[in-house]
Structure formats: structure tokens, C-alpha cells
Design a binder for these strands. Sequence first.
DNA 1: TTGTAAGCGTTATCAG
DNA 2: CTGATAACGCTTACAA
Lengths: 338, 338
Amino acid sequence: MAVTIEDIAREAGVSIATVSRVINKTKPVSPELRARVYQVIERNHFKPNTLAQGLVTKKTNMIGIIVPDISNAVFGKLTKGINSICSKKGYTMMVCESQGELKNELRLLDIMEDKQIEGLLFAGVDVNHTLVKAMLEKSYPVVLVTQEASEDEGAVSTVVHDNVTAMYDAVKFLLDNGHQRIAYLGGPKNDFSSGKKRLKGYRRALEEVGIEVRDSYIVQGEFSFSSGFEGMKTLYEENSKLPTAVVAGSDVIAVGAIQYLDSMRMKIPDDISIMGFDDSDFATYFKPELSTVRISYFDEGEKAARMLLRLISGEQNEPAVDYVPHKIIRRSTTKSLN
Amino acid sequence: MAVTIEDIAREAGVSIATVSRVINKTKPVSPELRARVYQVIERNHFKPNTLAQGLVTKKTNMIGIIVPDISNAVFGKLTKGINSICSKKGYTMMVCESQGELKNELRLLDIMEDKQIEGLLFAGVDVNHTLVKAMLEKSYPVVLVTQEASEDEGAVSTVVHDNVTAMYDAVKFLLDNGHQRIAYLGGPKNDFSSGKKRLKGYRRALEEVGIEVRDSYIVQGEFSFSSGFEGMKTLYEENSKLPTAVVAGSDVIAVGAIQYLDSMRMKIPDDISIMGFDDSDFATYFKPELSTVRISYFDEGEKAARMLLRLISGEQNEPAVDYVPHKIIRRSTTKSLN
DNA sequence: TTGTAAGCGTTATCAG
DNA sequence: CTGATAACGCTTACAA
């Protein structure tokens, strides 16, 4: 069906070796032959079969990406960042969705191996020992992105933002603005980096200034609007003494909380301050605009992709950890009490 | 390095053909041998090299996806829908970003061919003759999704929502609610399905009831917040007689428009009604909640993937066009004048 | 039911 | 500089 290197060789009156050489510029070929071969290639729209190439060279120019949820904006940005640098280097991405379930993640790790990817970018929810072990056994290098490993720390390369410090800074910001009663409305308990770590940052900031962290001020749920709404409801109903500010585990959660407060006729930020996390696109779509901590997932994707490429090329050999900066964005859902 | 079929054969004391047979269940193998082979496979974690397999069988179990913007929520949903059915059937997705530029689209079409994908899902911006021609020349079947071809209609399979009717229905909804002066705040002029077609629906609805469509009520831009903001500004400043309602080409545009009106102290929906398009996640995140026309991009992705699989399996041979339904969602940014 | 061997489309080694 | 030819890892007639 498709035209092969052999067809070209025959038509150009040379050996397939020569054709291969002009394609890959791997060894000198006389100008005349080269020209002749190029002609025939053009005329026939010849494109080498990458499967055959990969079979012998072990280079497939494909990298894999595993994310929990393809349609989630965070992973969309991340993937875009990854793509921006990979496509530039001639790599194509195979992207898969794990739903954040270990079973799927393990299966995809295998599938990726079958497909002979050259490297993998992995965004997980809880990268535990089982997962790390499986990754280490694979034939390709992997870099964790967005989530560091929860066990076997440092065993596999990682590019993340510092969740502990990011949330610490958010709380600190509120503290500096005179807030004392600050609640935490976070994501899943079992989410290592975006759940546990952020909560840790919250705790640390409070403890550092000697404020007691009360359990009734901590609500964990999902990274969703409805979870933010319900969580805020819980906070509202279970605390006779309401917090003056709440830090949310994500912008969507923050917005859900705002809507609940709105339904209770609470004014933001006058009655209560709300701080988001991520700086999603929609953070400035409505009034009051959301104060939040900005994470550039696009940059994170780029950085991770660069590291993976270094690992693939052998330019880098040891696992490394790289951090992407975050930034507190003060907008209109937070108010100073000073 | 990796263990091959030959290693397995040797260790199990059978021929590689036998191993191949037990792997693919392609021909009967005696129970004893089968068991023995399975054992060895398990013990060595053997996984056949899919490149080698693909080279001979022409089946790579990979499909391609080309979208203008990976991080755009619409395409995120679409991709998720595609993935949901493809992964179920054992297909893996290669996803690429075209930025909506013809040059890139053409290049990616080629790359996909190199990679030996079995089929392609294509989301474009203007699928013109050049593009259609290129697609038809490829070795794989393609189905257009989200965008029908702007030329050579019907030449390549398509799964879309009916943009003309969807926008027609939106305007009709407003008309039925007593609005007479309705403006259009749309996407790019050069976007065939989401731009031109929607505008066409707008015109048709108005003309049908004998309302003159005035140019000053039509503003086209980008599918972005700022474009919605600026577009609304233009509408506001260039019309002494303001519209009582505006239909937007997307929810983001609508939200940008709302923010401009808000800055002008206009009340929504009392002073002016706004209708979005897409029914994005954030449509209900803030008050007033956005009235819009719902398109289920996830379903669209699923439907398109199913069609592609049918094309691949040969179950379907002729190009077909399939429509996904839309639905008017009345929420709080539109008001009845009746 | 099992094995042998001829591809699949390239690259790469080794002579020439 | 150029050409045979042996891999690469697997499937699939064709024989046995």
C-alpha cells in the first residue's frame, strides 16, 4: 500500500541504504545521488514508517502523559505546557486518564511500556510505594509533575510547586491582614500534595504564631463547586464562632463557598474573607474578583517536560526535584482587618 | 534488554510461533503448552513489543486527536468523551494541538500518518478544501468533530451539534420572551461552525419574524472574556438605542459582556438580558446564573469516537454526518418582557 | 497441534 | 561514498 524505502531505492536506482542515509543525514552521500533520491521521495510523498524505525533504533519520539482527569482545567494547562516544549522537540504525546485510581495507573504504566514511549510525565493523586516501585521497573524514565511521591521520597524525578509553603503563605497573608480565626476548606484527604500538603501549610502558619488550630475549622472534601458549597455550610453550621476568613484548597471550592455564603446573605469580603487556590481563568470573571494563590501549571508542564527530555537524552541521570514558584494574588474577596 | 518472544519460547521450550499463538489466542494450542507458556510469560513480565506487532499487523491501537487548543475547556470535555470510549476499546490517544492554524494542521496530519494511527478525530476552525483533500489522501479514516467542513461538504464523516439551529433557538427563546432588539456578540469571523454558523442562526431567527438585522447589533471577536468585555463596550457605545438582549457566541464572551455592563451599572437581567453558549462549568458559579444553550461536548466526543471506530473496523464505509442535540437552559441572566 | 521460515520497513555493520 | 545483508520483535502462511 504505502510507498516504502525500497520503492524509492528502486525508482532512484540506488540501494535502500543510500536512501536511508539521505533521509537521516547519517552518512555522507554524493550530491547527485542525494538530489536524485530527494526527487523521488518528493514525487512519491514518501514518509518513512516510524514503527519500523522505532523497532531498530528504539527511538519512537513519543512520550506518555498520565493525568487523573483530562477535562480538568489544571491538567489542561499542564498538558499544554508539556506539549509546548515536546512538540518543539519533535515528540508526540500519548495522553491517558487514570481517574486517580491506583489500579488504572498501574495498568497505564504497562500500556505505556508496550507502546515504547521514551519517557513519561505522571500526575497522580497519591504516588505511593507501589507506584514508585512500578515506575522504577519500567524501561522509560518518568518525572512526576504536580504531585511529589508520598513514599520513597526522591526516588523519582519531580517538578512541583511547593504546596506546603503556598498554603502557608496564603494563611500568612490573611494573618498579616489581621485575621485570627481562619478556616480551611480543602480537597480530598487522600490527595497527598494538593490535600495533605496544603493542610500542613495551613497548620504550620497557625502554629507558628501560636494560634490553636481547631478541628471544627477544618473541612475536607472534593475539588468541586458543590463540595465547596457543602463544606462552607458545615463550617457555618458547626461553628457558633464563625471564622473571619477561609482559605480554600482550590478556586472552585472557594467559589462554591462564596455561593453558600451568598445564600446566607453574608457579604464578601465584609463579613468573611475568602482565599482561593490555583488562579483559574474564571477567578476574575465575576465580582468580587477572587483573591487566590497563583500556580502556573503551564510553566510547571514546561519545566517537567524539559526535565524529562534531559532524562531521555542522558543529559541528566540522577532523579531531581524542581520547584515552580507560586504567588499570592490579592483581589477583592479578602479584606484587611487592620 | 527487554525480554522478547524468543526468550519466552526458549525458556518454555516451544517455538516462537506457539508463544505468539497463546498471546493472541489466534490458533489452538494444547492446554499443557499454553499453561507452560503463560507461566514463563508471567515470570518474566513479558509484554509483546507493539511496534513489532504493528509493523506486521498494521494495527497499532492508536488513534489521533487534533484540537486547536489543548487547555480549552470545550476540547477538554471533548477529549474526555473520546477517551472514555476509546480506552474501553483498547485504543490509546495521541493528542496534538494545532493552534487552529492550517499550516500546523497539515503538518500534524502527516505526523499522524507517520505514527501509523488507525484513525483520526479532528477538531478544526475552518476545515476547507485544502484540509479535506489532505485528509482524504491519508491512509487512515478521519471524523470531524465540533466543526463540519466549510467546503467539500459531506466528503468526510462528521459529528457536530447544529450551530445554526442552536443559535436560532437561543434567539427564538428571547423573541418568545418579548425581546425585539437582540444583539449578537460572537466569536471569530473565520471560525466556520462556531462563528459563521451561529451568526447565520441569529440572522435566520430575526429574519423569520421580520425583524431587520442591523449591523451595529453584530460584533464579532474572539472566544474570550476580554473580547466579550470589549465587544459589549462597542455595542454599548455605538448604539444610541441599546438592545434589550444579547446572545453571546460562548459563555466566556457572555461573562465578559456582563462584567462590562456591570461596570456601567447596568442591571442584569433587568436592564438587559444575556444569553451564553456552551453551558460551561462556571455558568452556575456566580449570581445571576447564566442562561445559555447547552452543548454536551463529552457526548459529542463519545459519539465521534464511536463513529471513528466503526470506520476503522469497516463496519461503516461511507462518510456520515451525525448531530448531537443542544438545549436551551433558562437561568437568571434572561428576563421575560411579556 | 506445532514448528519453520518468510516477511513487515528500517537502520546499521561491514565490506568494497 | 555505496551496497549487501543482518538484525529489530513479531505474525502468519505453509509444512509437518
